[in-house]
């Protein structure tokens, strides 16, 4: 089992490293990630949302729906924990602890 896991890990790691070979250099200001969509946020954040912190603008405005999803994830986790650990404890509690 351990050998199999090790082989899988090495294989997956090698695949991931193979993918990085064509990646832009670290910190390259002209990489696609830094030139395609993100300059728009930096340029328009102040005008669109009057917020100097661009991360806040993207979080709450441009990609606000993701943040709604994020909140829903937390709610889901909370409800999941209640469902798993708390709900119905009172009735059963006396029988066996």
């Amino acid at each position: 089992m351990k050998i199999l896991s090790l082989i899988t890990v090495v294989f997956v790691g090698a695949a991931l490293i193979y993918g990085t070979l064509d990646m832009p250099k670290w910190g390259d200001p002209h990489s696609p990630a830094s030139t395609h969509v993100s300059p728009y946020y930096l340029r328009h954040s102040l005008h669109d949302a009057a917020t100097p912190n661009v991360v806040t603008t993207v979080l709450a405005d441009y990609r606000g729906y993701d943040t709604l999803g994020e909140t829903a994830v937390v709610f889901t986790a909370g409800m999941a924990c209640i469902l798993l650990l708390r709900a119905g404890r009172k009735r059963r509690g006396k029988g066996h602890v």
């Binding site: 990630a33 993100s38 661009v54 993207v58 979080l59």
Partner: peptide, 23 residues
């Protein structure tokens, strides 16, 4: 200025990670 988008994505991903950890 640094690229803001990955920061935002990862703020979301951190929360997802914590939620998975909790469950």
């Amino acid at each position: 200025y640094a690229n803001p988008l990955p920061h935002v994505l990862m703020l979301t991903a951190i929360v997802v990670m914590v939620a998975t950890l909790g469950v």
